[in-house]
Design a protein around this nucleic acid. Structure first.
Lengths: 335, 335
DNA sequence: TTTAGCACTCTTTTGTTTAGTTTGCTAACT
DNA sequence: AGTTAGCAAACTAAACAAAAGAGTGCTAAA
């Protein structure tokens, strides 16, 4: 579709623009970038690339900036893996070796690591419980009208929730419930808790619906509820030149504040481990001037959560993707 | 110290500036505010108030803005309780009636309510566990090398933490530990877990230090660790005119990103329920252009966490404090 | 003690000029 | 046919100037 030189020109423009945030002139491309021709030739090529939709102008006599189509082509066809410096490798390794007790913390740490290395803001969310299998449920009575339910899933995710009762509950009752719930739910996918099962539990444990009902409700609630979203490096974005525009800065803060927006993207079903959304590709009005790269965080095939990097469309795709790939390797022991 | 008219003038200027964010001119005060004199007289008063340090000028021929001393005098001496509208009362009531299972959620909801009603950003933090008494500890074995410890304090705060072991652990061992820990820690302030106690536990449970040690460590850690800080309404701040300055916006984002800064203020020991820090009063460089109002969130004398409102020095102190007082009343049933 | 009046200060807005880029096009060149 | 030098035209950005407007401080009179 594009001949070799056009590719080179496009690549040079994208990379130059990513570095400088300034429209790229035909002149600036002659000096380096291995384009062995004059600025006039490049101008011709640029005019062509613009006609084909890969480049935009900010005004009639400005340099060119990549269009979304341009970025997309760059990401799909022109991306080179970027080397990760020794320092960065050391930093990443030490961070990933942090001992954690909860899976969610691992995702958080990874998100923080990516943010530190790439200097972009990251958004992370733990694995959704509903895609998992219940390994074990334990009930713990706390005082006389409160209980904690602890649920362990097969991926090692632990969810706990406090349940309050309107009447006193005995240790004995808790034990019976514990036994029944485990009988029915152990090794079952979480979706199992459906209407018939509920009725079964009501029937079997005749002593009090007042006790069983809140338990079922609360367990379902905690397993279905959206995970918390964690932000890392919010302030890093403000060092970027695009954030000199108040408009942009405001939008950004708004995006991060309305977590549903981001959660939506992180949760959206897709096959790839790493997925790039450039500007309007996200199909979210608020994100039209930003790019998002999502990263499914897995160890040995097990979903551990999703991390999103959010930055300007002029994001250093190469760097971000290289770091993600490196972390992926690290986590999965193929070093 | 200030005669009656000076007080009136100062109050008018503070309130006008809070409303408009524009320097207040002598002329604008003649029309309303019940100052029954000419602009020239007001000019004289303003010059006097400036000499006394209550007012500032942005330049020689501009109107006046309150100095920090001016705000402080206003807050200490001139504050009137503001009426809370019926709508607001309804809103607050409905929010506060939300049923929650965990105390921390209550603080979060209250913080969110304050943010919604006042249109300022709030920062909240749950009660620190170390000021409390352990009511009960329960251990739950999860799998064979993982356990969850659930700690209930006398204020109803529940803390839970996952503990991993390097060797297999039996239900029997967990039970023994559970018994021992409760023997020694029940009804004790959390500070009790000290060196001698640790040694005692090691001695009594001879089977394996590998098991007991991580338990003690993790329990201490979770009880001592800083609570999570929750932000509400970050984006609200960006509607304020002072946030048209990029400098200010950046600082603000930085403040919210470095949570220690805010946590520090929320945790700082002070007697009052409501405390106002105006600009440099906070003694934090980064906060010198902002005001913070902290609110100790209590029900029946029990500490439930602290909420901080952060906004420009030109904050609507009257509104914020009125809302806090109203919520305090509501929560403590003196309606 | 208060106030009207006025000169003076300073900001804000608007317009103008100037200098500097960069493009697009034409015509020449390889 | 592809490439390039050269140049006019388009446009931005910065600097400067002028004008308008708002507010004060001071003086002198009420």
């Amino acid at each position: 579709m594009l001949d070799n030189r056009k590719k080179k020109v496009l690549q040079a423009i994208v990379e130059e623009y990513i570095n400088t945030a300034e429209p790229v002139s035909s002149n600036s491309l002659t000096s380096n970038h291995g384009l062995d021709c004059s600025s006039a030739t490049i101008r011709n090529e640029m005019a062509d690339l613009e006609k084909k939709g890969f480049l935009d102008k900010t005004h009639t006599s400005s340099g060119r900036i990549p269009s979304e189509k341009g970025y997309r082509y760059y990401v799909d066809e022109l991306l080179n893996d970027k080397d990760i410096s020794l320092e960065e490798i050391k930093y990443i390794s030490s961070k990933l070796e942090t001992k954690v007790n909860e899976i969610e913390d691992l995702t958080k740490i990874t998100a923080n690591t990516i943010s530190e290395v790439t200097h972009y803001t990251t958004v992370s969310i733990g694995p959704k419980a509903t895609s998992q299998i219940i390994e074990e449920i334990k009930f713990v009575l706390l005082g006389s009208r409160m209980m904690m339910a602890v649920i362990l899933t097969d991926t090692g995710l632990v969810k706990e929730t406090i349940i309050k009762f309107d009447e006193d509950v005995t240790e004995k009752q808790i034990e019976t419930m514990n036994y029944m719930f485990n009988q029915k739910l152990k090794k079952q996918p979480i979706e199992t808790i459906d209407r018939p099962l509920e009725e079964y539990l009501y029937d079997e444990m005749t002593y009090s619906v007042n006790v069983i009902k809140p338990v079922i409700e609360q367990i379902k609630k905690v397993l279905e509820e959206e995970n918390k979203i964690y932000l890392e490096g919010t302030n890093k974005a403000f060092d970027l030149p695009e954030f000199n525009s108040l408009e942009v800065a405001k939008n950004f803060v708004n995006i991060l504040d309305t977590k549903e927006l981001v959660a939506d993207m992180l949760n959206s079903g897709f096959a790839e481990d790493i997925k790039v959304y450039i500007g309007e590709e996200s199909e979210k009005e608020q994100l039209k001037d930003f790019s998002v790269i999502t990263f499914k965080h897995k160890v040995n095939g097990k979903d551990l959560g999703t991390i999103g990097i959010i930055g300007p469309k002029r994001m250093d795709y190469s760097k971000v993707i290289s770091v993600m790939k490196y972390i992926n390797q690290k986590l999965n022991g193929k070093s």
